[in-house]
């Protein structure tokens, strides 16, 4: 009786499900490999020092992406500088100060709502809120990105604050320290890992963002310093890719930018896992 193997029907089910799973995993893996190899192989040959170090010129009819690289760096810096205090502050409020459960629920619900809003809507609202008053410029784009990345910074900081042992806080309070002193000396140092993880994730998101920037930061390619850059319109790498591919048909340049973005994405993914592993290890000690 024991040697009777699975009925044909069960065997078929088993084979079918296993087959479907393997095909799906294979497809997903093949897709990632294809995208990586295709974009890199099309893009890397087009990356030259000249491309990286010049700006586009109508006279020589050559394209350079230096302004786009600079704009990307400026917008990342500006966004992080503004979003960090806001996001970390909001997280500290939620974990350390808030006593009213309804307010906590409201704030968390709002954060979830924000992370569900598509970037095109951010772009539109950013245009109405910022670009209409301060003009189309990198700063308007950065402010739009601040709203988009607020939930990310908030969430990662909150998660790391939850791992600060309650006994630390009690210890500090026991010594007669005031709330703010405890927050400053015990809580803030404990959220460094969350802040770093949040920054990495945000940088990734900013690098990939295009729809929210098109109407807020514009798509000019001028080389500027930081301050002048923030007050002038400018395209980030991602926006430049879109413009070159869709509007100008410059696929070589588009692929070069795509390859750069791809490499950056890989690096950011690695950094995020590395940081998370590092802090998880430190925490378990």
């Amino acid at each position: 009786m024991l040697n009777q193997s699975l009925s044909p029907k069960r065997k078929r089910y088993e084979m079918l499900m296993k087959g479907l799973m393997l095909v799906s995993v294979g497809l997903t893996a093949a897709l990632v490999l294809f995208l990586l190899i295709y974009v890199l192989s099309q893009g890397i040959p087009n990356i030259t020092w000249e491309l990286l170090s010049t700006k586009p010129s109508y006279l020589t009819e050559k394209i350079g992406i230096l302004p786009d690289i600079l704009n990307t760096i400026y917008i990342v810096l500006a966004t992080l500088v503004i979003v960090l205090p806001l996001g970390v502050g909001a997280a500290i409020y939620l974990t350390e100060y808030a006593s009213n459960k309804k307010i906590v629920a409201l704030i968390e619900y709002a954060a979830e709502t924000l992370s569900g809003i598509p970037s095109i809507i951010y772009g539109l609202v950013g245009m109405l809120l910022f670009s209409n008053s301060m003009g189309t410029c990198l700063m308007a784009g950065a402010l739009t990105l601040v709203i988009m990345n607020l939930p990310t910074i908030m969430r990662t900081t909150q998660e790391s604050l939850k791992t600060v042992p309650q006994s630390y806080r009690e210890g500090a309070f026991g010594l007669g320290a005031g709330k703010w002193r405890v927050v400053r000396t015990v809580v803030l140092p404990g959220c460094v890992d969350g802040v770093i993880t949040g920054c990495i994730l945000s940088v990734g998101r900013i690098l990939g963002e295009s729809a929210a920037l098109l109407f807020t930061a514009g798509f000019a390619h001028a080389v500027n310093g930081l301050i002048a850059g923030l007050t002038a319109p400018g395209a980030t790498l991602t926006v430049a890719l879109y413009v070159y591919a869709k509007e100008q048909g410059e696929f070589g340049v588009a692929f070069a930018i795509a390859a750069i973005l791809m490499v950056l994405t890989v690096i950011i993914n690695f950094a995020a896992t590395l940081v998370q592993k590092h802090f998880a290890k430190r925490r378990s000690i």
Binding site: M1, L2, N3, Q4, S5, L6
Partner: peptide, 15 residues
């Protein structure tokens, strides 16, 4: 189990 070796290859673990 009832004289069948439960680890033998003929035995189906599900049965």
């Amino acid at each position: 189990y009832n004289d069948t070796d439960i680890f033998s290859k003929e035995v189906d673990v599900n049965s």
